[in-house]
């Protein structure tokens, strides 16, 4: 489930953000408890707790005392605009680098994208 080449708490946070972006977790949905998460994914509960704490810090989740953690109402919109900002730097630029390496010009890419419209 998790790989050990980056901290698991970050992988947990990314996974939950993806679930929110794809809509499998919606506004005000309750997420798993730390212990449920730890038992399900077979990881130390402190590691899971750190992942959730990160999401609370970022405002993606909010806590209800004694009940659990829930998806913040503004999380989907906020996450989408963050990802949109990173899209060109993290997705398009590496693609252009690879295109340059294999000799594909920007015109060729534009034609291709035009055909997909």
């Amino acid at each position: 489930m998790f790989h050990d080449r980056s901290p698991i708490y970050l992988q947990i946070a990314d996974g939950i953000k993806n679930d929110i972006l794809t809509g499998s977790l919606r506004e005000d949905d309750q997420v798993m408890s730390t212990n449920q998460y730890a038992a399900f994914y077979r990881i130390n509960p402190a590691t899971a707790a750190k992942g959730f704490a990160q999401l609370v810090d970022e405002g993606v989740l909010y806590k209800r005392r004694g009940i659990g953690m829930f998806v913040s109402p503004d999380a989907p919109g906020k996450l989408r605009s963050e990802r949109r900002q990173r899209f060109f730097a993290e997705v398009v630029e590496p693609m252009l680098d690879e295109a340059k390496r294999v000799g594909i010009g920007v015109d060729e890419i534009t034609d291709y994208l035009g055909s997909r419209r």
């Binding site: 050990d4 080449r5 901290p7 698991i8 708490y9 130390n44 750190k50």
Partner: peptide, 10 residues
């Protein structure tokens, strides 16, 4: 070394 396991990943 004595550290959080997660700090060693990556």
């Amino acid at each position: 070394l004595h550290d959080e396991t997660d700090a060693l990943r990556g």
